[in-house]
Amino acid sequence: MQKSVLLGAATVALLAAGAASATTLEDVKARGSLTCGVSTGLVGFAAPDASGTWEGFDVDLCRAVAAAVLGDPTKVEFVPLSTQTRFTALASGEVDMLARNTTWTFSRDVDLKFEFTGVNYYDGQGFMVPKSLGVTSAKDLDGATVCIQTGTTTELNLADFFRINNISYEPVPIETNAEAQQQYLAGACDVYTTDASGLASTRASFENPGDHVILPEIISKEPLGPLVRHGDNEWGDIVRWSLFAMIAAEEYGVTSANVDELAKGTDNPEINRLLGTEGDLGAMFGLDAAWAKNVIKSVGNYGEVFEKNIGENTPIGLARGLNAQWTDGGLMYSPPFR
C-alpha cells in the first residue's frame, strides 16, 4: 500500500518491468510466499475459519505447492476471487496460481491463455428434489420449476438437458448459493440444480437432509482443477506434479503418517524416486529433492485431503466416485515418477 501511494504508478511500472522478467518460481522463492487464488467461499473447498486460516480441498492444493516450492505449507497468501475476477487476477500476475473450483474447458485453456495443470476433482451437474415429490429420475421433471444460479455454465447445461429430453421447465433465477438454499427450502422451486458436490453440501446443511434426494443423473462434465498462466512451463510443471505427487502417494500407500518412515528408503523404487531417496527428480525443475515428501508430510496424500475436507466422514459426505484411484475404478491416475 505504502509503496504504491508513495512511489506512484510510474515507479510501480519500473518495478514491474523488473519483476516481469523473472520466472514465477523465482518470484515465489524471492517473495518467500505463494499467492494462490481461491474461491471467496465454497463449502469444503475453500473457507476461512474463525481465526482467518483458510481451509478446504482447493486450499490444501495451494498448501501442497507451497510445501513443494518453499518447504512450508503455511507460506501461502490466499487471495479470495469472485467468478468474475478470477481470470484477470491470474492473467495480470496478481496470483501465481488458481485453485478455485474452475472447470477445465477448451476456451479457457486455449483462448484465455491459461494452462490447466490437472484435475483435482471430477464434478458434474446434478439435481436435488424433495423426497415428497416422488421423483426418481431427472427425466420425470416435466414442467418443474428449477432454481438455478444465473450466469454459470449450469444454466446452459440445464437448457440442453431439457431440450434433448424434450421436456419443459420453468427457471427461477437465483444469485447465490445461500439464496438458492432459502428459495428451495421455502418451496419457491421444485428442483435445485448445481454441481453435485455443491448439492451434497447444501443438502448436508438442511434440517432434515433425509427429506431431500439427489437424483442419479449427472448432466455435465465439470473437471475442476488448478491453472496457471501460459508461457511459464516450468511453473506449470511444478503445480502439475505437486498434484500428481499427492495422487501417486495415495496409490503407493504413502501417507502423512508414514512418509518419514518410507523416506528412509523402501524396496519400491517408484516410492523412492517420489520421495527423493533415489535419483533427483526435484532438481529437474529446480526444487529440493524432498519436495514431494514435504507435500505429503504437510498436507497428506490425495485420499487424506479428500477425506479430511469433503469425504464421507465430514458433514458434506461426498463419496469418492469418479475421484477414486484408477485402481479402484476412478479417474485419479498419476503418470509414473521416473
Partner: peptide, 17 residues
C-alpha cells in the same frame, strides 16, 4: 479488472486505493 489490463503485468497497484 480493467486497470489490471492497462498496467504492466506483475503490477499490483493497491486494490483498496
Amino acid at each position: 479488472l480493467l486497470l489490471a489490463y492497462f498496467l504492466p503485468p506483475g503490477t499490483s497497484f493497491d486494490i483498496l486505493l
